[in-house]
Design a binder for these strands. Structure first.
Lengths: 329, 329
DNA sequence: ACGATTCAGTGAAACGCTTCACTTGGGAAC
DNA sequence: GTTCCCAAGTGAAGCGTTTCACTGAATCGT
């Protein structure tokens, strides 16, 4: 880290070339092998490194991939973010991670912000896939959407949430549960998310008596919501739309001295690494996070490296039984 | 999100002013109330929003705060990052989060990258606080360091790791443990981190028979290291230098059908929210993450808002007993 | 009534790079 | 020996802001 950055002009002077030539040379364009070598040497000598801001302004590209998360309080999304970040790094690309903290309005602002940063591509896990700004955004930058109902221009990684919900609720039904509390994630608005719609539809079909409540992902908040539900409603099972929320149920059960699954059964959704560590292990719906990460990275890389075939990767869920759901008599 | 961004020039034309005047007006500088109002109206009308990249290039500032994490695989650091991100948002500032994945070389590159992004300030949790580039970096941007031995120019949030280690090891010693396996986090180099040094010093003082091994934060990796340790060395206790790593010990114990704390005692370090949920709860050293977040945010905000008093906030650890450490006969 | 001081606003030069439209010199083609 | 072309390199105009040094007019104290 030299005391003062070298500019491209200085490299040009050092080599006796024009700044333009240096610019081309450093990117391996339009110049002879020989000058390229000469320029590289001079650049190394001077400790020159291109200024990303100036570059972005001039070229309209930043070399970064934006990652817009619905809510990083969800531990699973944290894992996803970390995974994607790592995956991109392996492809020599950098991720710019922003967190909408569950707020659709914030989602709009941050999406705009990322575009303003000239990201080459955008991976989003939309809170509100129906929001009106997505189409416009998709026009100005390749988008890979991760989720359920979609917006991607560069591809999509689709969770079959309908199937996931079916898997979960059928499991509960088969084991004899009828009165099921549903805990879904809090959000500032967007009431009719497709995932939620699936839940009520499936519950109807299976003849389950459900009550849907929203809960935050963050442990303390989830615990407090779960405490109320467990104490007041006495459901035989709780289905949480994220493992993070299920952790809150575990905590609440502990506080209330209820035993899982004897006093109440719990199901999660996502399969976060910690879920297998709890006692009892959390029965959940597993989404193959590695597969999702790989798919998302591959799609965005393809889109930005100019292989523009838009693809749709569908993730199938798996039921992962671990012991947090009891069979009712 | 208008189809095409309005530029400052267009706003200038619309109001009949010079671009300079508009620039000043939008920032509430140097112009009369009346024109300010006129400019604001026109800007709103045209949907103008300043381009952050151009702004950063011209002014050398971006309005963002960089957050450089040692390793986001550490769940505790994830929590820290999320907390800081949220804390900054409340102060109307944005965080740019980068992850060095435990690699000191990467840490240097990313630090440089953040400076190149013209961040107004930098919060770092250094992997290698002794690395030579910190002083130079500190000259070009206010730095708040979080950790043990420090580099901050804008302030520091210090963990008293010596005390934390003492707390943990004394606890083990008091309960009769002598043969203790230490699991510390993997890193690409930097062998002599102060925290590690404290461990061996303290162990000596207390007459503990320790063996130090490095383990990754990520669950599968930690589990596999822990499995080897538990099977081969048969320590009476394992002290993990991060709760994430302790989770690996729980997983390994489960696989080996060892019971915690009957067959082996486990201590963590950090107090991650999940630690209280495990069975048995993980006994750990608690660092008051909220306090750290608040301190870091306050320090960096003070430094960038021009109140340049450099402060040092020391965090004291607390022992949090939960049941994963048994008293030996 | 006069220079001195403020106030509101202007013009143009940065910021550091990319890129477009052009020169060149020199070889191949005819 | 022209003509044509191509690879290698140049100049200058951006990209959208900020900021510095200034101007003209209005205000002020005396």
């Amino acid at each position: 880290m030299p005391r003062k950055r070298a500019t491209i002009r200085e490299v040009a002077q050092a080599t006796g070339l024009s700044p333009a030539a240096v610019s081309y040379a450093l990117r391996g364009l339009q110049v002879s092998e020989e000058t390229m070598e000469r320029v590289r040497a001079a650049a190394a000598e001077l400790g020159y490194e291109a200024d990303p801001i100036a570059r972005a302004l001039a070229s309209g590209r930043s070399g970064m991939i934006g990652l817009l998360c619905g809510s990083l309080e969800d531990l699973w999304q944290q894992s996803l973010a970390v995974g994607i970040s790592r995956g991109l790094r392996e492809k020599e690309r950098y991720a710019l991670i922003l967190d909408a903290v569950g707020d659709p309005a914030r989602e709009r602002i941050l999406a705009q912000q990322l575009r303003d940063q000239r990201v080459d591509g955008l991976i989003v896990q939309p809170i509100d896939p129906a929001a009106s700004f997505w189409p416009e955004l998709c026009e100005s930058v390749p988008v890979v959407a991760i989720g359920d109902s979609l917006v991607g221009t560069a591809g999509e990684v689709v969770f079959d949430n309908r199937r996931g919900v079916t898997l979960a609720l059928e499991h509960l039904r088969t084991l004899g549960h009828r009165k099921v509390a549903i805990l879904t994630s809090t959000r500032a608005s967007t009431p009719d998310r497709p995932a939620d719609v699936h839940v009520t539809a499936e519950a109807d079909r299976l003849g389950l008596d459900i009550e849907v409540t929203t809960a935050p992902h963050e442990l303390a908040g989830a615990t407090s919501v779960a405490r109320d539900i467990l104490a007041a409603k006495r459901p035989s099972a709780v289905f949480c739309f994220a493992d993070s929320i299920a952790y809150g149920v575990y905590a609440a059960a502990k506080e209330l001295e209820m035993s899982i699954p004897r006093d109440v059964s719990v199901m999660g959704y996502d399969d976060h690494p910690m879920s297998g560590l709890l006692t009892p292990g959390l029965t959940t719906v597993d989404w193959d996070i590695d597969g999702i990460v790989r798919a998302a990275v591959r799609l965005i890389a393809a889109a930005t490296d100019g292989a523009p075939r838009r693809r749709r990767v569908v993730q199938a869920p798996t039921l992962r039984e671990r012991g947090s759901v009891a069979r009712l008599p």
